[in-house]
Amino acid sequence: MQTTKNVLVEIEDLKVEFRLHEGTVHALEGVSLRIPQGRTLGVIGESGSGKSVTAQAIMGIIPSPPGKIVQGRVRLYLPENGSERVVDVTELPPNGAEIRQIRGKEISMIFQEPMTSFSPVHTIGDQIMEAIRIHYPEVSKKEARERTIEMMRRVGIPRPEQRVDAYPFQFSGGMRQRAMIAMALICHPRLVIADEPTTALDVTIEAQILELLQDLQKEFGMSIMYISHDLTVVGGIADEVVVMYLGLVMEQAATDELFDNPLHPYTQALWRSIPTIDGELERLSPIRGALPSPFAVHKGCPFYSRCEKRIPGVCEVSRPPMIEVRPNHWVRCFLYSE
């Protein structure tokens, strides 16, 4: 079992482009990251950072066309009968049997908007148990239903015996998100990708959902990739955090390290620009400028135009490499190169 390195997913130098009529969007410009087994990787990013595209690449669901994986690998290390199976998602046909065996069974996803993620014409229960019916055809309908009820109880849906036959519109937003989690976990996947799962929810409900995810992780031992634009939320749930900006990983470190000791100018600026509930109440220092056009091509650091610590003649000329400034704390910035 030495080979697993405790890594479940390894993304290596992934480049994804979207060729639109208006031009080419370089959604990912060489992203590398690892999702450790049984732990939570938080991914922080604004719109256009590529955080959701990264998730789509892992699931093998990049819409194509217009999307296209230009280079890179997405390897899944799946333990199987004591040994390990390595699957490269980028090499699988997008709708082939193999990737469909992985989706829903090994990897599942929780979306931001639980209303649109459920079909309005089927009961919640039918939709949750669909994954069992697909991946475990030997399981009887009765047993699938029992497992569904059990999972609904586990995610905190009251009276699951009755609500298994309810329709999505009969659920509140928070309950729908719980049902969504039940659906994602019903086959006990190794990885759950949560793409802004609480953004549409109220803060008190958000706290409930986050706690639930953490409890379920303890119980089932799955890895979580938690994607959000909200640093404070990610800070509360992740073990390790990746900060993305315009298709690149800018900084990566353990959560406490990243929050207490942010190194990249973007991360630092982001920290200073958000109002907090418990920090000092001083004037916010905004990041100047706006996100560049999604069609822009960046030869150097994509944050150059907004960076307050940039080195003209260096940063815009070539792309800074990832540097391990402190143990396990990686930064993509020339400030830290020799």
Binding site: G156, S172, V203, T204, A207, T232, F259, T276, I277
Partner: peptide, 24 residues
């Protein structure tokens, strides 16, 4: 309850953010 649910930046770890069951 509302204040307790807001994610903290200084004390980020769980336990600081109190979770109360129920919905509006």
């Amino acid at each position: 309850l509302l204040l307790a649910a807001v994610p903290r930046t200084v004390e980020r770890r769980r336990g600081q953010r109190t979770v109360t069951p129920g919905e509006p």
